[in-house]
Write a protein that binds this DNA or RNA. Structure first.
Length: 640
RNA sequence: GCCAACCUAGCUCAGUUGGUAGAGCAACGCACUCGUAAUGCGUAGGUCAGGGGUUCGAAUCCCCUGGUUGGCUCCA
């Protein structure tokens, strides 16, 4: 008997009797294969003829397939668990999947493992790999599984939670046996290169109330060369880390005296943030937004009305102040705002609104403070104090879709302007929520309709909405492929209700408006952090804190350089002069590492005939230009 | 908040088994006055994150606090 399988190139291949997927793989020049047939076969040395009928389509995965690396890494995780049990006798094993960049395995150990143990563990792994023993799949009954894992309480717990009809498969590798659905490499020798990366803590089943396990991260590749490339890329990514560049380019700093997650902006950083705001403010004014300014602190009553006092208490900064006398104290409680909504809601409530006034769009560059848990702060990307480009749109039911479309439109302009690709997600009603079914249904379909109207593809994030309404999130892809949540559009049923917001209809009745929250940058600081990494610090000219640096060749050219600076400043160009007593090429090198877009070299020649020698940071020497021509060229970078 | 590691000059980092600190860059001074990615010489700079303990002696070992990093959890 023989079967026909389909190979990766689309051609068919007839399998001889008794062939295994690995025979197929070998015959097409690959050492790794996985045959998948309705989930019944995986990449082990299974005799295809026992499982595949004539005419079945069998997919063969070779080491060139995208899935292959996942399989390799998951197999490496097994080998690592095997090694860990030798280095740490009695280790309890939990789960060990592959990840985007490698794999991990969770353990419960008598003594904490640390990176100091990596050498010993890696040596064991290498030893196991060199033995090149096969991974063998077995199907077992539930009672067999319970017996096999009698000494592994996490595995045992997992076996007992498997549904009654589940097929239970285990993989043996040498002495090591693991509960696992597979697939795996044919044998451990296929692991070409591996490296343990770091240790971390992780809760069993991701549940903070369960055991804290030790998670060991590693990565693996088919070849040493691939591993080296990966490690090199990590180094490159570290070079563009916004925390490193933020310090090198004088953008922001942190001081432990100030407190965690509280960045201080140096002049360059402040400049960039103001440029971002200046640009956005113009776009918003053109689209019917009105800028407002609201307090940074409010009496606790505001937060009791909004619900934050109960729901968000542990993330807020509260303080008390004596508004009485020393003898007769009268304590008032205040909190620093963790969001801007209440201010805008109070502004709306200040007046009676007609249906004709809507939509009302209030925006604010609102700095908020959230006491994030100590373990989560991360440079500018997750800070405790940050500024949102926050806006709230109060509108009628018939305006919701149009408003959301307009917001998506603007989000698209923002992302294109800053050079980002993005993806959209719609988050729907969570288990714990307020509002009627009709409201949720209306809001969710309004968001979907808006996306459809803009031809914006989106994923659905089931049950991940806020308790007060559904939302569209826009995630930005940065230069190294990571995604960050930035823009958000949310429908809110909570605030209009709690603050009793109303408007008068054409029939002179009272109606409750819809309230949309929206932010485009999200947090300006987070957006800046992503920008810095995206451009490796070389921000677009229009956002560069210094656009031009004038470089006098010798000391006698400094005076002329200062005169040139004055001319450029008069044309609103952000310019400075390098007056250091250093050779010109040293000044050039300095300007390059400062990522200054344009360097203007001036010496005897230039000063004599009113020209500049222009050097662009990426293009290099552009030759000589008239000063007036250069000023004219720079006009394109003015925000207008 | 949890797990682990880390904190030495402004920055990047050395500092062997405990014997009371070092380099490069930056800064400052002098010389050089230079044509597109780093000129030479010199000077100064540190309660080794802070506090407590062990010890004849602590950057080094132990404890506490703060901060940082990587994860987990969280992210109205």
């Amino acid at each position: 008997m023989s079967v026909t399988v389909t190979l990766p190139d689309g051609s068919n291949k007839v399998l001889a009797e008794g062939a295994t997927v690995y025979d197929v793989a070998a015959s097409i020049g690959s050492g790794l294969a996985k045959a998948a047939l309705a989930g019944k076969i995986d990449g082990n040395a299974v005799d295809l003829n026992t499982l595949v009928k004539e005419g079945d389509q069998v997919e063969i995965i070779t080491s060139k397939s995208p899935e292959a690396l996942d399989i390799l890494r998951h197999s490496t995780a097994h080998v690592m668990a095997e090694a860990m049990q030798m280095v740490f006798p009695g280790a309890q094993i939990a789960f060990g999947p592959q990840t985007e960049t490698g794999f991990f395995y969770d353990f419960e150990l008598d003594h904490s493992a640390s990176t100091d143990d990596f050498e010993a563990i890696e040596a064991k792994i290498a030893e196991i790999v060199s033995k090149d023993e096969p991974f063998v799949r077995e199907i077992v009954t539930r009672s067999q599984a319970e017996e096999l894992f009698a000494a592994q309480h996490f595995k045992l717990e997992h076996v007992r939670e498997l549904p009654a009809d589940a097929e239970i498969s285990v993989y043996r590798h040498g002495e090591f046996i693991d509960l696992c659905t597979g697939p795996h490499l044919p044998s451990a020798g296929k692991i070409g290169a591996f490296k343990l990366m770091k240790v971390a803590g992780a809760y069993w089943k991701g549940d903070a109330s369960r055991e804290m396990l030790q998670r060991v991260y590693g990565t693996a590749f088919f070849t040493k060369k691939d591993l080296d490339t990966y490690l090199f890329n990590i180094e490159e990514a570290e070079k563009r880390d916004h925390r490193k560049l933020g310090r090198e380019l004088d953008i922001f700093m942190m001081d432990e005296l100030a407190g965690a997650g509280l960045p201080l902006y140096l002049p360059h950083g402040a400049r960039i943030i103001r440029l971002m705001q200046e640009w956005l403010r113009r776009e918003l004014y053109r689209r019917g937004y009105e800028e407002v300014i609201t307090p940074h602190i409010y009496r606790a009553e505001v937060w009791k009305t909004s619900g934050h006092y109960d729901f968000y208490h542990e993330n807020m900064y509260f303080f008390h102040i004596n508004e009485g006398t020393e003898d007769e104290p009268r304590l008032s409680e205040y909190a620093v705002k963790p969001m801007n909504c209440p201010g805008h809601v109070l502004l709306y409530r200040n007046d009676i609104h007609s249906y004709r006034d809507l939509p009302i769009r209030y925006f604010e560059f609102g700095t908020v403070y959230r006491h994030e848990m100590s373990g989560v702060v991360h440079g500018l990307l997750r800070a405790r104090g940050f500024t949102q480009d926050d806006a709230h749109v109060f509108c009628r039911v018939d305006q919701v879709v149009d408003e959301v479309v307009a917001i998506l439109d603007l989000a698209d302009i923002v992302m294109k302007t800053f050079g980002f690709d993005y993806e959209a997600e719609i988050s729907t009603r969570p288990a714990k929520s307020i509002g009627s079914d009709e409201m949720w249904e209306f809001a969710e379909s309004a968001l979907k309709e808006a996306c459809a109207r803009r031809d914006l593809a989106y994923e659905i994030n089931e049950g991940d909405g806020a308790f007060y309404g559904p939302k569209i999130d826009i995630k930005v892809k940065d230069a190294i492929g990571r995604t960050w949540q930035c823009s958000t559009v949310q429908v809110d049923f909570n605030f209009p209700e709690r603050f009793d917001l109303t408007y008068r209809t054409a029939e002179n009745s009272t109606e409750r408006p819809f309230m949309l929250h929206r932010a485009l940058f999200g947090s300006i600081e987070r957006f800046l952090g992503i920008l810095i990494e995206h451009y490796a610090g070389a921000l677009p000219v229009w956002l560069s804190p210094i656009e031009v640096r004038v470089i006098p060749i010798a000391d006698r050219h400094i005076e002329g350089a200062q005169a040139l600076r004055a001319r450029l400043e008069a044309a609103d160009i952000r310019v400075e002069v390098d007056t250091d007593n250093a050779p010109m090429r040293v000044k050039i090198a300095k300007a390059q590492s400062d990522k200054i877009p344009y360097m203007l070299v001036v010496g005897d020649k230039e000063l004599a005939d009113n020209t500049v020698s222009v050097r662009e940071r990426h293009e290099g020497d552009l030759g000589t230009q008239n000063v007036d021509d250069f000023i004219e060229m720079m006009k394109q970078y003015v925000i207008r």
